[in-house]
Amino acid sequence: MMGRIARLAATGLDLAGALLALVAIFLVTWEAGTRYVAARYSNDWGTEVVIYLLVWSAALVTARTAFETRHVSANVLIDLAPLRIRQAAFLVALVAGIAFGALLAVYGAEVVRFAIRFGTTGDSSLRLPMAWYYSVLPTMGALLSIGYGVRLARFVADPAARLPGQTPIEGEVA
């Protein structure tokens, strides 16, 4: 049951993030095109909106990156260690991940409060509240903690399951 809810939530976040990114792709292309075709449609806020959309879209998939332990690490040495030590190290990494996410959530929320207190807005003529953008920080932090938390629960339930490190291709892009 819990597993199904987690999977549903992860899929929902994936789709939401992907939709935001899709909108950003269309917007940034539209911007580039209209500048030549019809300058009167060009605006000064496109860049700002594209940034917000893309940072938010990446933030929404954060939980999955934590749960699937896709964050890159230097595993060369630890992979040589005995299983018990590797398990202990993995436990430490999960707890550290939860703690970091919590710190990011708490202080990110402070950044949001700071932006609300001053009513700061973006530089473009849309004057979007910066608080909308900064909310990405506590969101990222919370999702990271949740992702690592779910992974921790699974690890505690079944410590014998595959540890990360044996599949270093995960989490790679360049």
């Binding site: 994936d14 789709l15 993030g17 992907a18 939709l19 990114a21 899709l22 879209s57 990446a58 933030a59 929404l60 998939v61 954060t62 999955r64 990156t65 699937e68 896709r70 964050h71 890159v72 989490g171 790679e172 892009v173």
Partner: peptide, 13 residues
């Protein structure tokens, strides 16, 4: 959308 989401996960990392 799933392909974009996969790219976003790589981006988040």
């Amino acid at each position: 959308l799933p392909t974009i989401a996969e790219a976003l996960a790589l981006t988040a990392v």
